[in-house]
Simulated scan of single mutants.
Amino acid sequence: MQDRTKGDGTGRDGTKRDRPDRSEAGSASRRLLLDVMLGKLARYLRMCGYDAAYALDHGVEADEALLALARDEGRRLVTRDRQLAERAPGGVRIDVRAVDDQLRELRAAGFELSLADDPARCGRCNGPVDPVEAGEPVPDYAPDPADTPCHRCRDCGQVFWKGSHWDDVRETLAGL
């Protein structure tokens, strides 16, 4: 991802930019909409605390529908499609396919990428999560909340905890 902006809303050549400058990206809203090519990236961003909606979770693929959804929900569009990124206010274009490289691009553009002490979003559906109290029932696949802190998604009911996947993501982010 190349940063070709002057910081005033236009590129060095005077055209409308398709990427945020570094200072803008770091302070930008944490409400994102990721297009159909970025599903795995959405999960990582959710684990980093971003409200990262994924287009296919909304049944949206067409450019006009993506733009409308981003506008209606106050989200920044993140896409691999150059023309679409140019059309979206504050649109962010990702140039690479591998999720590790996508994360590097976002970090280089000023996005904060670190795991919080406590999860805020569900990796599966992007819903907000709450801690599961000791004694609350959990599915058979989950550890006992009295022994291991667990969280439950308010939207889909998924229960999760900081296990090996959390450690793998932390390691990936540390290696960027």
Rank of each mutant, 00 (worst) to 15 (best):
E64C: 00
L103W: 01
L41A: 03
S29N: 12
E133K: 08
S27Q: 14
K16A: 14
L33S: 03
D57S: 09
A70Y: 06
P137F: 04
V99W: 08
Q83M: 12
Y44V: 15
R30P: 02
R31N: 12
A116H: 11
R46I: 07
R43A: 08
G123A: 10
A68W: 06
L67W: 05
Q102G: 01
R75N: 02
L115K: 08
L41C: 02
L33V: 05
D100E: 15
S114D: 11
A85W: 05
P119F: 06
I94G: 02
A25R: 06
D100Y: 05
M47I: 09
Y141G: 11
L32R: 06
V138A: 03
R124S: 13
L67I: 13
R30Y: 00
M37C: 12
L67Y: 05
E61G: 09
G91D: 01
D57Q: 11
A53Y: 05
D72Q: 12
V99Y: 07
Y50L: 04
Q102A: 05
R87D: 07
G39C: 08
H58I: 04
K40E: 15
E133H: 08
A108Q: 15
Q83C: 07
V132S: 03
L38S: 04
G110F: 07
P139C: 08
R87L: 14
R107F: 03
S23N: 13
F111Q: 00
R46D: 01
